[in-house]
């Protein structure tokens, strides 16, 4: 096995911003749009993804020497499905109302491209330490994306943040309800993605130096 991939630190840092699964790779968008109406489900989802990603990356990294190329996707899916089922049962046992609120989105982590892509790109090729760093980096990146979208949607849609009232007039029926509904998810996701691209472009122009005009 070639060990010339990025180091653990590089994997960790890349997962958070430079290769952010949502804002840079546009992976796992279905749950991203669905669970970000409020902070609490977004946090729970981020936690479930962190658990599954770390467990799957560690296990796949440990058995990477035994993988047959044509059976690797089967092994990845089997591993991911097991840890997702464990996460789903844990939520149903200890965070029952949150488990009901998330509905099928926790079982659907099984088919989330973010996790299988990490198995394919990192943990099936690199050691356990790098795989763990990669899992944490990508999971934090995913959490960052979920929580940024959820922050905008919950504050504008409900006037609260983590159920704490933050907007004036929250006591009444304050609510820009489109933000809680599906169109709000697309709007906020698109605007944040655009903002992120704009920031990246400016930074890239800054790196090039003289060719960047001040805006």
């Amino acid at each position: 096995m070639a060990m010339n991939g990025p180091t653990a630190t590089e994997r960790f840092v890349n997962g958070i911003l430079p290769e952010n699964p949502v804002y840079r790779q546009l992976l796992g968008l279905c749950p991203t749009l669905a669970v970000t109406a409020a902070m609490k489900p977004a946090l729970t989802m981020a936690g479930a993804v962190l658990f599954v990603l770390v467990c799957a990356n560690v296990l796949v990294s440990l058995i990477r020497g035994l993988l047959k190329p044509h059976l690797r996707i089967l092994v990845f899916t089997l591993t991911i499905a097991t840890f997702v089922t464990i996460a789903d049962r844990l939520l149903a046992a200890y965070l029952y109302s949150m488990s009901k609120a998330l509905g099928p989105y926790v079982p659907l982590i099984i088919v989330n491209c973010i996790i299988i892509s990490r198995c394919e790109i990192c943990s099936s090729k690199q050691g356990v330490v790098t795989a763990i760093a990669d899992a944490f980096g990508v999971a934090f990146g995913y959490a960052l994306a979920l929580l940024s979208i959820a922050t905008v949607r919950e504050i504008l849609g409900r006037g609260t943040w983590l159920d704490i009232p933050v907007m004036p007039l929250t006591q009444g029926d304050y609510g820009w309800s489109v933000m809680i509904l599906s169109p709000g998810a697309f709007l906020v996701m698109g605007l944040l993605l655009g903002l992120w691209n704009w920031v990246e472009k400016r930074r890239a122009r800054g790196r090039l130096g003289a060719s960047a005009p001040g805006a």
Binding site: I63, L71, V75, T85, R89
Partner: peptide
């Protein structure tokens, strides 16, 4: 010889999930 890893993992995961269900089923 091709699929032994898949079979071993499926057996191991099946047992693990049965254990989880045994432990968490009553709580749920």
């Amino acid at each position: 010889s091709q699929a032994w890893l898949v079979l071993v993992m499926a057996t191991f995961f099946g047992a693990a999930l049965a254990g989880v269900e045994h432990k968490l089923g009553p709580v749920i």
